[in-house]
Design a protein around this nucleic acid. Sequence first.
DNA 1: TACCAGGTCCTCG
DNA 2: CGAGGACATGGT
Length: 245
Amino acid sequence: MKLTVLFDELLLFYGRQNWWPVTDFGKTVPEYKSRTVFSKKQKLEICFGAILTQNTSWKNAEKAIESLNRNKILSIEKISKISEKNLAELVKSSGFFNQKAKRLKIFCKHLEKKHDGNLQKMLELEIPGLRNELLSLNGIGNETADSIILYSAQKPVFVIDSYTGRFVERFFGKKLLEKVSSKTAFGKKLDYIGCQNFFELQLPKNVELFQEFHALIAEHSKTFCKKKPDCSKCFLKKDCFFGLS
DNA sequence: TACCAGGTCCTCG
DNA sequence: CGAGGACATGGT
């Protein structure tokens, strides 16, 4: 099954996901129809959310964001200034709170140092430069970097997470992946860039498509394609490599 | 009770 | 490289 067809089926079944941001709704820009414009604060919130949700349920991460918002410290300056200990307390619900407090501060201090405390300046970088810069920060790995690029900077990179890896490997089977993902090929384990190439080489580089597709795969992975999958009830069974075996 | 959730870093072969 | 452990809360 082609990826675009898969996307259509997922969208039809689950509807639009509209991940991010959470603190306020974006404004719709008429000429681009469904594309939304985010405020500075919302873009920052997305970056924080990407860090706070690391290996953690979104619900718990969301609580932490709300706590930051309630305490009026959703700003680069405030996060830089607050003590790590107090910050950890505020983001407690997201788990790994000591690490995450540290990571939020590292992120904000980097912005102050390299971009005059202006997130937008960093987000305007070209994808490769932006990605490398994000990856250079302690606490930001592939997925977090790509989430920031796709959802905050709104540039087209396909985000891979554990859901996506699991789903793709089951649905398409490893062999097909190796074929399509070209040189970065999959070794024994599904690697991040290989999986990302699998999507990016087959899809038009469209931000909204990437945003929704990723979110839909996550939704599907929570509904049917769980760790312990519910293949019998899954509407994709007839086209699924794994579901057929 | 045990397991899982929108990962990343560090250490050690 | 790659396996293995640490980090930790809240929901089922």
